[in-house]
Computed example of a mutant assay.
Amino acid sequence: MAEREVLLKILDLARWAPSGDNTQPWRFEIVSGDHIAIHGFDTRDWCLYDFDGHPSHMAHGALLETLRIAATGFGLDARWTIRAGCPDTAPIYDVKLQAEPGLAPDPLFPHIETRVVQRRPMRTTPLTDVQRERLTAAPGPGFQVQFFESFAERLEVAKLLWGNAHVRLTCPEAYAVHKEIIEWGARFSKDRIPEEAVGVDPLTARLMRWVMQSRGRVEFFNSYLFGTIAPRIQLDFLPAMACAAHLLLRPDSPPAKLVDHLAAGRAMQRLWLTVADLGLYLQPQMTPVIFRWYARAGQPLSGLPSLNSAVASLAHRFESIVGAGEQAQFAFFCRVGAGSAPRSRSLRLDLPDLLRT
């Protein structure tokens, strides 16, 4: 039986797991000295980017892996199961902890809190063979990592992101999400993305803040003043070129159940923590993956037919870049590279706010 203080320390580390737009779709319950229940949820009911809840499920997997890594720092082995009878929209994960004499801390333990998102341009210094080997092995069995490193490959990805960004910034259904997830005028944020971490210059940030106060302003600005150009250049095209490589995490088998998306989240987190261990930075680029999920599932992204046609075209372009067919599975897409540490970042809700009594 672990002391409650130890369990709180483990959860205080686990809460630093990544989640889409810092939504933190989980709450913790300490059931006993060796049992923690994690009450998960997803944001599919309001977030366009949480396709069928799968990005939230991947975040749950990242959390469970982070908790396991954190537990090793206290000589504890953490193993989880999915509680029977729970819907995928609100899964409960029962985590049992057991003392393991001689258990060494996971090598990724020191990077749980230092792992960050770097949305600004990085250096184009190529990855070394050692770095590439570490990143290839990081996700573990069941997943492959595909690299896009040359100038030509980065340019193709940049053009793909340029097209995805146009859909993202003009989609009416995305407006409410974008308005909700940014904390304007902030360097740090406990439950959103702070303005200074968005990745645009101060002038563009001020303009974005004014425009996003109403959907009418967004439509007018996009239609008559080329409103998507500056953010697409700063948030998508330039960062896509200014990095060492783009990485695509691909599962060996198509995900069929909740547990498969949890496994993808675990692989994603181990990849991300390995990036930090190598002294590099990472930025997720999930919009192409999520839009492709919509296209291949035959589900409309928007009520505007033109945007759905654009999503289908972008899905084909993504597959062409990757050299994959329509049945291939993509789990996580990101860019990595060296550079200066971000000055701004998303924090997390305080642990008491994440605890259920």
Rank of each mutant, 00 (worst) to 15 (best):
P91N: 00
H111V: 04
A99R: 11
G140Y: 04
F74Y: 14
V117W: 05
L76N: 09
P87I: 03
P110T: 03
F109H: 13
R123Y: 12
K96L: 12
G73A: 13
T125M: 11
R134T: 13
Q98R: 15
T66C: 09
I69N: 00
R115W: 02
F143L: 09
V95D: 02
V116N: 04
A70C: 08
R68W: 10
G102N: 09
E133S: 15
D129A: 15
R134K: 15
Q98P: 07
G75M: 06
P101K: 06
R79T: 07
L97N: 04
D77A: 13
A137P: 14
R83A: 13
E100L: 12
I112T: 06
L135N: 02
A90I: 08
T89Q: 08
C86A: 01
T81Y: 11
R123M: 10
F143S: 05
P121A: 05
R119W: 01
E65L: 10
I82R: 01
D94C: 10
L97E: 04
D106M: 09
G142S: 03
P87C: 06
T89L: 08
P126Y: 07
A70E: 01
P139C: 06
R134E: 15
A104P: 11
E113Y: 06
E100Q: 10
T114D: 11
T89N: 08
L108N: 05
I82C: 03
T72M: 07
L67I: 02
A137I: 12
E133H: 15
F143K: 00
A84M: 06
K96N: 10
R79C: 09
G75W: 01
G85R: 00
A137R: 14
D106K: 03
L97D: 04
D106P: 10
L76F: 14
P87E: 07
A70L: 04
T136G: 15
I69D: 00
P110W: 03
W80D: 08
D129S: 15
T66N: 06
L76K: 09
A137W: 12
Q131F: 12
T72W: 01
R79A: 11
Q98L: 13
T136M: 14
A138G: 14
G73L: 11
A70F: 00
Y93H: 03
P87D: 09
P141K: 03
G142N: 03
L76Q: 12
L97C: 11
R123W: 12
